[in-house]
Design a protein around this nucleic acid. Structure first.
Lengths: 135, 135
DNA sequence: CTCTGTGCAAAGCGTTTGCAAACGA
DNA sequence: TCGTTTGCAAACGCTTTGCACAGAG
């Protein structure tokens, strides 16, 4: 159980109990949809409002405390900001894993061919996880 | 100006005038949001309904005639299905370019570390296009 | 104490659905 | 002709907004 008070403040966000719990939930679960986050939050705050979740998620994104992950054919999920990484998603059970991949060469090649100044690479790999391959 | 009648039928879609124009618009413009597509369609069909656009877009995705492209911080765009490729997007002017990148090695490495059986790689590179770099 | 955040209810907006008429094959 | 598609209007669901009260700093 981490304490996110300082990290929230570093991102210019007041440390309210609701925000601490959002941070904690994302820290424990890795990636969560709004829907799932709301369920989890309800267990701690029996009268929390969806509006509160949305307001905070949006603020946290603006302040780069969290990030949205867009996944093909699925709802977006949210995760705490961390070093650049890619995602692997199972098309059957919808599990999402982080994966560290070196995309430096790919990005370099892409900026040469496109003449873009590239500063971010979002990669989502889709397939079957180990469990689902066996079914 | 291509004729998409046959290609639509290969994807088990009747070739209605509306569908032919959606295909043509995507063929000419590369990537379009629903909103932009509606504008363009209105020029050819003065009483086309947004519902028709949505119904067709969804059908066309189901039948793999087109694909959705999810882009960070932007609305989704749609494109005709073609060989696997990645996207480069300008965060300033929102231009989108296709780019051919060999992700075989990256994907192979990813499947080894994750133990996933990977069959698709969606990569979106964000940055500044040549023009916007100069401003 | 002041300003921000919360919860509630209502509004907003993009997307989907149901239906009768029009149309493709 | 028959089954599908279209356009319209209504319904739907997710997200945002306005406001009064509560809470963080």
């Amino acid at each position: 159980m981490n304490n996110y008070t300082d990290i929230l403040r570093q991102h210019h966000l007041k440390a309210t109990p609701q925000r601490l719990e959002i941070a904690n939930a994302l820290g424990c679960n890795g990636h969560m949809s709004i829907e799932r986050l709301y369920e989890v939050m309800l267990e701690k705050f029996n009268s929390i409002s969806l509006a509160t979740i949305y307001k905070n998620i949006n603020l946290m994104i603006e302040n780069a405390f969290i990030q949205e992950v867009k996944i093909p054919n699925e709802k977006s999920v949210y995760e705490l900001s961390k070093d650049m990484h890619s995602h692997v998603v199972c098309t059957q059970c919808h599990e999402i894993q982080d994966i560290k991949l070196d995309l430096a060469q790919t990005t370099e090649l892409a900026s040469q061919t496109s003449h873009f100044k590239i500063n971010k690479a979002d990669l989502v790999l889709s397939g079957l996880c180990q469990k689902c391959q066996q079914l």
